[in-house]
């Protein structure tokens, strides 16, 4: 279970989004980095022995 400071952070950021019309500019690098980082790591996993199978399991694909 997360602690109170985490709950505070959720609320603080939601209020920032509500009042700051530029919230997306601040959030975009964070959201994009998550995708870009995962893509890089997935490519690394694919290059491992049985990489395709490992990636399938990691991503819980059929």
């Amino acid at each position: 279970m997360r602690d109170e400071t985490h709950k505070d952070q959720i609320e603080r950021w939601a209020r920032e989004v509500k009042t700051n019309t530029n919230w997306k500019k601040e959030l975009k690098p964070f959201l994009d980095a998550q995708i870009i980082n995962a893509m890089i790591k997935y490519k690394k996993i694919l290059s491992l022995p049985n990489g395709k199978e490992k990636l399938k399991r990691i991503r819980n694909l059929n």
């Binding site: 019309t21 530029n22 500019k25 959030l27 959201l31 995708i35 870009i36």
Partner: peptide
């Protein structure tokens, strides 16, 4: 409220 359209993320 007008919000910028140039900040679309990869997901967007």
């Amino acid at each position: 409220m007008k919000r910028g359209v140039s900040n679309k993320t990869i997901l967007d």
